[in-house]
Design a protein around this nucleic acid. Structure first.
Lengths: 228, 228
DNA sequence: TCTTGACCTGAACCAGGTCTCATGTTTAGG
DNA sequence: CCTAAACATGAGACCTGGTTCAGGTCAAGA
């Protein structure tokens, strides 16, 4: 589950336009731009967002933007990649101490939902990547699924997961589930005052885990396989 | 599964701007606009698409557009609703002759995937609605899920589906699965010549059905419930 | 202190888009 | 055949926003 997500933790931070490495000052500016972009894209969506809004929020001159990013699209992609790193971090951290496979599964999803609940708008950004930068979204999903798949395969070896399941398809299935359920019960749900929940309703979470447990557990109780 | 999708089949077709009913000629123009919009939105995405491109493709004057739709957003929403009707139609048609619950499940997904494979780009339109018109997307999902949920509940009554599963959460889970798997194995997949598949790989489909079967089937073989 | 390269700036350029409107054309009914 | 209502048109008013550029400012080393 720990893909080389951590190797990329802090790349040398190079100017995208000139290719030169940045000084401390330059790096700080770059970071401020990214943070501003995060907020603006999240609040307004890609097309409503504008470079002006981003630089204004960052408290930086408009022209400065182009010293650090080639285009609006470029900073968006950088942002998605950054978010991907953070989601995976949240997931693998949550899974760290899990004993059994089911525990790990539960913890991984909990980590995922916690991240989504904590940054509801950010999640929107990732999903919008499907239309703004399909390749980046591709990367996002693939990176997450790869870790998942590996975990499933290992669990199958041990016999914790039904061996007849295809790990790849299963991983994508789980991922899709998590995503839509997160969207429905975290992003759409709000109480009477319009306040979104800060975590997934435990009933929903439990119901989902039951579903997953059913799906993954080897059939026929604790014995071996049953039917053809 | 047959929600009143068919009641809306052909509304009187009223001009969105004037509210007046349309003559035959007007109705034909409206239809041509919708068809052109379907192609243009699908190929280029919402923001790249333009009214000019749509009217050009429809072979219609620019100004005419505004006789039929209030805005770009308005025609987009009309399109999503139309697509929703068609997906559900494809699904319920496929499920029509199913004997068992599993059969129905299989057929429903097959219908869904068939539609996606036949109109890969259209599917993109629906997903983009998340950012262009969230309410419309909400409607889209809800309409599909509602039917699903009802089917699940009925199957639980009969004992075909694990009674401990929450029908709502399960319905959303299934929907999410189908969507991501469709995206991954239909929309992303292409052979060496870049040609997308015209149906879901049977291996993938079977793997997914196994997963679903596991998840839904009452635990403990054909007998009653087992653990707490 | 002076110099140099890195960093910063925002007015202006420009491409493209939506929507209006004054005008012309078609169709159906009397 | 004549008239009114419905339908069609595309130039242009108006606007928005990404990107460039010519000219500053800052900070660190000599």
């Amino acid at each position: 589950m720990t893909t080389p997500a951590d190797a990329e933790l802090d790349a040398p931070a190079v100017s995208q336009t000139t290719g030169r490495p940045l000084t401390k000052r330059g790096e700080a500016t770059r970071r401020r731009l990214l943070e501003a972009a995060e907020q603006v894209f999240a609040e307004q969506g890609y097309h409503e967002a504008s470079i002006v809004k981003i630089t204004e929020r960052a408290g930086i001159g408009l022209g400065t933007f182009y010293l650090y990013f080639d285009s609006k699209q470029a900073i968006f992609e950088a942002l998605v990649i950054d978010l991907n790193r953070r989601v995976r971090h949240s997931m693998s951290e949550a899974m760290a101490g899990a004993a059994s496979r089911l525990d790990a599964e539960r913890a991984g999803f909990a980590g995922f939902f916690r991240f989504t609940a904590a940054h509801p708008a950010l999640y929107r950004v990732v999903r919008e990547a499907e239309f703004v930068s399909p390749d980046t979204l591709h990367l996002h999903y693939t990176r997450i699924v790869d870790g998942y798949e590996e975990g499933l395969r290992a669990a199958q070896q041990v016999g914790d997961v039904d061996r007849r399941l295809d790990p790849t398809v299963t991983a994508w299935a789980l991922m899709g589930m998590g995503e839509l359920i997160g969207m429905r019960f975290l992003l759409w749900e709000r109480d009477d005052d319009g306040v979104p929940p800060d975590e997934l309703d435990t009933h929903v979470f439990d119901a989902m885990m039951r579903f997953i447990d059913n799906a993954l557990a080897p059939r026929g109780g604790t014995e071996g396989p049953t039917d053809a």
